[in-house]
Amino acid sequence: MTDHRFEILACDAAMLERRIGEFSALLQACVHDGASISFIMPFSIDDAEAFWRGKVAPSVAEGSSLLLVAEAEGRIAGSVQLDHDTPPNQPHRAEVRKLLVHPDFRRRGLARALMAELEAHARLLRRSLLTLDTRTGDRAEPLYASLGYQTVGVIPNFCRDPFAADKLDGTTIMYKAL
């Protein structure tokens, strides 16, 4: 998908490796901006790189997940993952993971464009149900609802707050039938 302001691309393992610094900077910026995406402070660029190399690259290389990127102004401005490595009794389902938009590029429609492209790829993979979770009350929760994701429920005290070790946040479980 191309827009006059940004372009959405599928990223293979080679591109991820070539641009690992940009992916790491994106993740670190989002975590430092308060995104509750599995990480807590302090969160270094080395921590971010370890995530991309250790968790994302293997599944992208083996083809069990899809990594989409939004490029804007010559850099990676956002990304999202579709994990379609499901058990034999769930070939119709996939999970949305780690929707990231760099704070410098928010409010430009990148998240919506990334999700639309992710859903198009899910349909090509014959996936008719997408699931995700997001921190309850986070900025992403109303975005997902506006895209047609339905809330199943909330699990309280699900994860540590990125900044406050003694604070636990809930997570909202959502789904969308395609």
Rank of each mutant, 00 (worst) to 15 (best):
L130R: 06
L118A: 13
A70M: 07
D133C: 01
R127I: 06
E17A: 15
L82V: 07
M1W: 03
D166W: 01
Q28T: 15
L100V: 03
A50T: 14
D166I: 01
P88A: 12
E7Y: 05
P142C: 15
Q90L: 11
L130I: 05
Q90N: 10
D3V: 00
W52L: 04
F23E: 01
I37F: 03
E95C: 00
F158V: 09
D166N: 04
V154S: 09
G21Y: 00
A113C: 03
M15F: 11
C30Q: 11
V69A: 15
S128E: 12
A14R: 09
Q81S: 08
L168C: 07
P162R: 08
A164Y: 11
L132N: 00
K55Y: 08
I173W: 07
R112A: 12
K167Q: 13
D46S: 12
L110S: 09
A14C: 00
K98F: 09
T131M: 08
E62C: 09
S44Q: 07
D85S: 14
L110F: 12
A116V: 13
A120N: 14
L124S: 14
L110T: 14
G137D: 02
A164S: 15
D47V: 05
W52P: 06
L125P: 02
E49T: 10
A165R: 13
P103I: 11
L66W: 04
G137E: 06
S24D: 12
L147S: 07
S36P: 11
E119F: 04
I45M: 06
D47K: 13
L66G: 07
C11G: 05
R135I: 04
R53L: 15
F6C: 11
R123M: 09
D83H: 14
M41Q: 14
D85C: 12
V96W: 01
L110M: 12
M41K: 08
D12K: 05
A94F: 03
A35F: 11
E49Y: 00
D33S: 07
G78M: 02
P58F: 04
V80K: 12
